[in-house]
Nucleic acid binder design. Structure first.
Length: 260
DNA sequence: ATGGCAGCTGGAAGCTGA
């Protein structure tokens, strides 16, 4: 099965691209970030017309996450703190049964960007990451089948940025952010792309400005992590740069995991 | 060193993203 993560930077603007993509690629589960649309306005019909199911957690203007799937998923949570009405919409968890009829958890995250080191938003980012760890500790253990994916707004290592010297110790690469990310890995996750492609420097996000895509000035911040049980069933994982070449593209491009 | 591009809101220009 194919599981894709894609920060679309407005589902309203990118809806046709998304519909074309899941159809052309035959995606089983698509996790979206930055839908930027309320639940009331979520384009449910466009997906149900293609025989996909949707769960979503959105708000006006900012953030917003959704999971589009061929098989109906079981919604489990849209909140890290049990207070979804007060949280920005960045978290969506669901369950499904894999081919062996084994329960699998999928957690779709849009981790805050943080803007600038030591800013208020950066502190919020670090708090958010702490809450994510607490959520995992409270609700799961590393022996389960869990896929944690989305826009992490953290580039895990030097291969994940276009120029480690120019981009070091700034937002998305700082030691503190990477340490928090490492703690999540230590909890029991594997960065499946890096595991499969140990030396390759490939990116999933390029700034709209400065011809960054053409010059390949990018970051790998859209990640798919899996527990050992997921890794056992790994077939392939890849970044598809093609949608970044579309007219009116998202600044992110999809990353797809293929598992048995 | 700065701003650059894009989307959203509201109905202009400012906020946010990464």
């Amino acid at each position: 099965m194919l599981i894709t993560t894609w920060n679309v930077n407005s589902l309203t603007v990118r809806l046709d691209q998304v519909l074309n993509y899941i159809t052309a690629k035959n995606i089983d589960i698509l996790c979206l970030q930055e839908t930027k649309t309320t639940n009331e306005k979520f384009p449910v019909k466009a997906f149900t017309d293609l025989n996909y199911h949707c769960i979503y957690s959105g708000e006006k203007t900012y953030n917003g996450v959704a999971i589009i799937s061929k098989d109906k998923l079981e919604f489990t949570s849209n909140s890290l703190t049990q207070y979804p009405q007060t949280e920005s919409k960045r978290f969506l968890a669901a369950n499904f049964n894999n081919k062996e009829n084994k329960n699998t958890t999928i957690i779709n995250v849009y981790i805050p960007n943080g803007q600038e080191i030591d800013s208020e938003k950066y502190i919020y980012k670090m708090e958010w990451l702490s809450q994510l760890q607490a959520y995992l500790n409270k609700n799961h253990n590393h022996d389960e089948s869990i896929i944690l994916l989305g826009d992490f707004n953290i580039a895990p290592g030097d291969l994940d940025v276009f120029d480690p010297n120019k981009t070091s110790d700034s937002i998305m690469t700082s030691t503190a952010e990477r340490s928090m990310y490492e703690e999540i890995l230590q909890w029991g996750f594997i960065d499946l792309f890096r595991e499969q492609h140990k030396e390759s420097s490939e990116f999933s996000w390029w700034d709209y400005r400065n011809f960054s895509f053409k010059r390949n000035l990018g970051y790998r911040i859209d990640l798919i992590l899996g527990t050992k049980n997921i890794y056992k069933n790994l077939i392939d994982i890849y970044i598809d740069k093609e949608p970044r070449k579309n007219d009116r593209p998202s600044d992110h491009t999809p990353v797809t995991l293929e598992i048995e």
